[in-house]
Amino acid sequence: MNRFKDSEHLLRVVGVFLVGVTLFLCLRAWFVPKSFGEFGHYRGDSLAEIAALPIIHAGHETCETCHTDVLEVKKAGKHANVNCEACHGPQAKHADDPGSVKPLLPDTSVLCARCHEASSAKPKWFPAVITAEHSMGMPCNTCHTSHSPKIQGDKK
């Protein structure tokens, strides 16, 4: 030991460092989540957690399993590709429990204008009117049917 007599204090420093590094490695083994690194540098479990978030919009396929009558009407008209929840809002709760959760019927005097109010920024092909002049506040379904908006007898 005599050889290290004058460098002993330095060896003590090395010892302190080694203890520190060991502590760090233990901490690391203890605290890093088990699924970390499963797919990459992140917690693998988080994928399933995010995938498990609740669904709010049921999706039109779900709606159509019951509302086949509406589907038939819609398919024949201009709104064929407009999905149910685009107008009716999110309905997963209703799909889950159709008996007790009843959706509110939207007010067409407000609803239709969201899309069909004329604006210079809208594409030219899109049918739009200035509602104040066109219907003067009347609900659109006074004349149009929402699911197939063409007016009866209209040639167009």
């Binding site: 978030l53 609740p54 669904i55 919009h57 999706g59 590709n81 999905n83 999110p90």
Partner: peptide, 19 residues
């Protein structure tokens, strides 16, 4: 991600009226 992993489309695509 909670929708597309179950075969549904995204909420925004579902609600987009013009595709």
């Amino acid at each position: 991600y909670h929708r597309i992993t179950k075969g549904l489309t995204t909420a925004c695509c579902e609600a987009c009226p013009t595709g």
